[in-house]
C-alpha cells in the first residue's frame, strides 16, 4: 500500500481519531491550558485534516461514480449526507487552524466615560475608538444579575459612528472586530487626609504615608450579608468594602466599611470610601476562520439530517447496497443473521 493510500485510508483516520481522543482526555487531566497547544497534538490535528481531505475527496468521487448505477435512493441520500459530514468537520478544523494562526483575542477594561483606541490593540478594518457611556445591569427579583450591558459610542477618532449596546449573548461587530460583554467590575473611590482622592482596584495594597501600615482592598460586596459567604446579588442594597490592615506585613485585622464612613487607620490618619466606579470588561476578537467554521457547521448539520437521521448506512440487513459511504469494507456477516422465531424476534 502506498503512503498516499495509507494516509487517506479509513483505518489511519480511525487511529488518528483514537489518538486525538486519548490525548484530549489526558490533556484535560494534566494541563488543560497548555496541552492542546503542544506540537504533538497539533500534528495529530493536521494529519486528521489531511486524512479528511483525501477521504472526502474519495467519497465525492465515489458518489459521482455511483450516480450512474442503480442504487436505492435512500442510500444515495445517506452517502451524500456522509460526504457533507466529513466535509463539514474538515471545514470546522480548517476554520480552527486559521483562527489559531491568524486570529487575535484580548480583553479590555473600560471605566464609565473612558475611551480605548481599539486600532492600537489589534488590527481593524478602519480606525476604531470606543467610549463607554454607561454600564447597565438588569436584576432578577432576588437581586442576582439578569443581564449586563455596555452602552458604547464608537468612532474613528474624527467622526462619531453611533451608539451601540453590547450585552451577554449579544456581541457587536465593528470594523471587522467582534466585541463581547465578558464581565464587569468596580474600582473603589477613596478620600483620605494624607493625599489626593484615589481609585483603588480590588486586591490593591496601599501604603499609608508616615506609618508602617498598609491597607488591602479585599473586595466589594454590593449586597453584603454576614450570614452568606457568597451572595449572588449584585444589586447595591447594602454596599460594603472589605479591607484588611497590615503592619510590617503582619495582618492586624479585617473588616467591612460602609460608604462615607470615616475609618481611622492610624493616629491622625483617616480614609473614607465614597463610592464605586464601575468598569466593563469586553472581549475583542478577530477570527478569520469563522466563515469556514460556520460553513462547516452548516454542512455538518445538513449531513447529519441526510446521513444519520434520514437513514444510517449499512443497517438494512436485506439490502445488497450496504457498502461504501464511511468505507467500503462493510460486509454483512451471514453467520449473524437474526434468530427470529415465527416472525417475532427472540431477545
Amino acid at each position: 500500500m502506498s503512503l498516499f493510500n495509507k494516509i487517506s485510508s479509513m483505518k489511519f483516520g480511525i487511529v488518528l481519531l483514537g489518538l486525538i481522543g486519548v490525548m484530549s482526555a489526558l490533556g484535560s487531566l494534566v494541563s488543560p491550558d497548555n496541552f492542546y497547544k503542544t506540537m504533538q497534538f497539533k500534528l495529530l490535528l493536521v494529519l486528521l485534516i489531511i486524512n479528511l481531505m483525501f477521504c472526502t475527496n474519495r467519497q465525492i468521487m465515489q458518489l459521482f461514480k455511483r450516480a450512474g448505477r442503480t442504487a436505492k435512493p435512500k442510500n444515495k441520500v445517506a452517502r451524500f449526507g456522509n460526504v457533507l459530514i466529513h466535509a463539514g468537520i474538515l471545514l470546522v478544523m480548517v476554520g480552527g487552524a486559521l483562527n489559531a494562526h491568524y486570529g487575535k483575542a484580548l480583553e479590555v477594561s473600560i471605566a464609565e466615560g473612558g475611551t480605548v483606541d481599539i486600532s492600537t490593540l489589534m488590527p481593524t478594518r478602519e480606525p476604531l475608538q470606543v467610549q463607554l457611556q454607561q454600564i447597565s445591569i438588569e436584576y432578577n427579583a432576588d437581586g442576582s444579575p439578569a443581564q449586563y450591558s455596555s452602552v458604547i459610542n464608537a468612532g474613528d477618532g474624527v467622526r462619531d459612528q453611533g451608539h451601540y449596546i453590547i450585552s451577554v449573548n449579544h456581541p457587536l461587530t465593528l470594523a471587522g472586530i467582534k466585541a463581547y460583554q465578558q464581565s464587569l467590575g468596580y474600582q473603589i473611590k477613596m478620600q483620605s487626609n494624607f493625599g489626593p482622592d484615589q481609585l483603588l482596584h480590588i486586591g490593591q495594597i496601599l501604603s499609608i504615608p508616615n506609618t508602617e501600615r498598609q491597607i488591602r482592598i479585599n473586595g466589594y460586596a454590593p449586597n453584603f450579608d454576614p450570614y452568606r459567604a457568597v451572595d449572588p446579588s449584585l444589586r447595591p442594597d447594602n454596599p460594603q468594602v472589605i479591607i484588611s490592615v497590615y503592619e510590617r506585613g503582619v495582618a492586624l485585622g479585617t473588616g467591612i466599611a460602609s460608604f462615607n464612613q470615616t475609618i481611622k487607620i492610624a493616629d491622625d490618619t483617616y480614609i473614607t470610601f465614597t463610592g464605586v466606579q464601575p468598569f466593563t470588561v469586553l472581549r475583542l476578537k478577530s477570527d478569520p476562520g469563522i466563515p469556514y467554521a460556520a460553513a462547516g457547521a452548516l454542512l455538518l448539520v445538513g449531513g447529519i439530517c441526510f446521513g444519520l437521521l434520514y437513514k444510517p448506512l449499512g443497517v438494512d440487513a436485506n439490502s445488497s447496497d450496504v457498502q461504501g459511504g464511511l468505507g467500503s469494507e462493510a460486509v454483512l456477516n451471514q453467520n449473524q443473521r437474526c434468530d427470529s422465531v415465527n416472525g417475532r424476534l427472540k431477545y
Partner: peptide, 19 residues
C-alpha cells in the same frame, strides 16, 4: 473536551461497525 472524547468513541464505533 469530554463531549469530544465521547463523540470520538462513537464515531470510531460507527466506522468499525461497518466491518
Amino acid at each position: 473536551t469530554w463531549a469530544l472524547v465521547t463523540w470520538i468513541v462513537y464515531a470510531v464505533y460507527l466506522h468499525l461497525h461497518r466491518q
